[in-house]
Simulated scan of single mutants.
Amino acid sequence: MTGKTSYDFGGETAFVTGSTDGIGRGIATALAVAGADVAVNARSSGDVETTAEALDARGEGTVIGVAADVGDPDELRSAIETAIDAFGSLTLLVNNAARWPEENSMVEASLDDWDRTMAVNARAQFHATKLVARHMIDEGIEGCIVNHSSQTGDRRAGDRGLYGVSKTTVNGLTWRLANDLAPHGIRVNAVSTDVTESRQLRYEAEIEARERRATTAEVLDEWGGARPLGRLGHPEDIADGVLFLASDKAEYVTGTVLRISGGGNLE
């Protein structure tokens, strides 16, 4: 490694969807530690309150919890309005929330599963970005929006069809919104992840471990070892990418999908 980086987000205000666990919590934590005011989000009011209380002590900014199902347009609008009312403005939106479909096969997936998956993984990112971008434009804020994508969005085959389609959509949204918002000084980028420590990944590892009569730790170690860099991703790895894209060091970066995958994107 060469060089060391630290970030100061004092005075910045962020809304991070799906941020009480896993990658989202890692992003919210990093922003709080860097001094930002942060609104954490999940569907459960208990989860957001507990997370906000824990993260509020991590930095000099204020952390609040805003419960909402981002797949519901009215709840999402209300959540963003709550964050703006609490902080006075939003300078950063991180569209992290996602759901795993019940069936990834494009042949077996139902229309209801399509609707639910796209509502959270794609439509919510579009809707949240529109709402926050309008606020930024009206207030003259040259802010930043970071979407959460996935390596599955780049691949043309594999066993994550419906999820992959939703993330391909996220890539397209990132490019198109970046183009439309650039004249307003608003930058739109995405982070694309591969196998990263999370509740969903551990759940999948537990299933495979039972099938193979292995331990969950053994499965996770194998998955990480298959990456070119030889390990699983950590939420902190993704948070580092988000903080870079939201910082002044990336002021000439927009419309980029930053692949934070340990080389998994090379497959």
Results as ranks from 00 to 15, higher is better:
residue 119 A to T: 03
residue 119 A to P: 02
residue 120 V to W: 11
residue 120 V to T: 15
residue 121 N to K: 06
residue 122 A to D: 06
residue 122 A to M: 08
residue 122 A to N: 06
residue 122 A to T: 14
residue 122 A to W: 00
residue 122 A to E: 09
residue 123 R to W: 02
residue 123 R to S: 03
residue 123 R to C: 03
residue 125 Q to A: 15
residue 125 Q to S: 15
residue 125 Q to L: 15
residue 126 F to H: 09
residue 126 F to C: 01
residue 126 F to T: 01
residue 127 H to G: 02
residue 127 H to L: 14
residue 127 H to V: 14
residue 127 H to M: 11
residue 128 A to R: 05
residue 129 T to N: 06
residue 129 T to H: 09
residue 129 T to K: 03
residue 129 T to A: 14
residue 130 K to D: 12
residue 130 K to R: 15
residue 131 L to W: 00
residue 131 L to G: 01
residue 131 L to A: 01
residue 131 L to D: 01
residue 131 L to Y: 00
residue 131 L to M: 03
residue 132 V to A: 08
residue 132 V to M: 05
residue 133 A to Q: 01
residue 133 A to K: 00
residue 133 A to T: 02
residue 133 A to D: 00
residue 133 A to Y: 02
residue 133 A to H: 02
residue 134 R to F: 04
residue 134 R to Q: 15
residue 134 R to P: 05
residue 134 R to L: 10
residue 135 H to M: 09
residue 135 H to S: 10
residue 137 I to L: 08
residue 137 I to W: 08
residue 138 D to E: 14
residue 139 E to G: 04
residue 139 E to F: 00
residue 139 E to R: 12
residue 140 G to S: 12
residue 140 G to Y: 12
residue 140 G to A: 08
residue 140 G to R: 13
residue 140 G to T: 12
residue 141 I to K: 06
residue 141 I to R: 04
residue 141 I to C: 06
residue 142 E to L: 04
residue 142 E to T: 14
residue 143 G to H: 06
residue 143 G to I: 10
residue 144 C to W: 10
residue 144 C to M: 11
residue 144 C to T: 14
residue 145 I to Y: 07
residue 145 I to C: 05
residue 145 I to L: 06
residue 146 V to I: 14
residue 146 V to R: 11
residue 147 N to Q: 08
residue 147 N to D: 08
residue 147 N to L: 04
residue 147 N to V: 02
residue 148 H to L: 15
residue 149 S to H: 02
residue 149 S to E: 02
residue 149 S to Q: 02
residue 149 S to I: 00
residue 149 S to P: 03
residue 150 S to V: 09
residue 150 S to P: 09
residue 150 S to H: 03
residue 150 S to A: 13
residue 150 S to C: 09
residue 151 Q to M: 14
residue 151 Q to R: 10
residue 151 Q to C: 13
residue 151 Q to E: 13
residue 152 T to V: 14
residue 152 T to K: 11
residue 152 T to D: 14
residue 152 T to W: 15
residue 152 T to L: 11
residue 153 G to C: 01
residue 153 G to S: 00
residue 153 G to L: 02
residue 153 G to A: 00
residue 154 D to I: 05
residue 154 D to S: 12
residue 154 D to T: 08
residue 154 D to H: 14
residue 154 D to C: 05
residue 155 R to H: 13
residue 156 R to V: 13
residue 156 R to P: 01
residue 156 R to I: 14
residue 156 R to W: 10
residue 157 A to P: 07
residue 157 A to R: 15
residue 158 G to V: 07
residue 158 G to W: 00
residue 158 G to T: 05
residue 158 G to S: 06
residue 158 G to L: 07
residue 159 D to C: 04
residue 160 R to K: 13
residue 160 R to D: 12
residue 161 G to R: 11
residue 161 G to E: 08
residue 161 G to W: 09
residue 161 G to Y: 08
residue 162 L to C: 05
residue 162 L to W: 05
residue 162 L to Q: 06
residue 163 Y to E: 10
residue 163 Y to W: 12
residue 164 G to F: 03
residue 164 G to E: 01
residue 164 G to K: 01
residue 164 G to A: 04
residue 165 V to M: 14
residue 165 V to Y: 08
residue 166 S to I: 05
residue 166 S to Q: 07
residue 166 S to W: 09
residue 167 K to V: 12
residue 167 K to M: 13
residue 167 K to C: 14
residue 167 K to S: 12
residue 168 T to A: 15
residue 168 T to W: 09
residue 169 T to A: 15
residue 169 T to R: 04
residue 169 T to L: 13
residue 170 V to P: 10
residue 170 V to A: 01
residue 172 G to D: 11
residue 173 L to V: 03
residue 173 L to S: 03
residue 173 L to N: 02
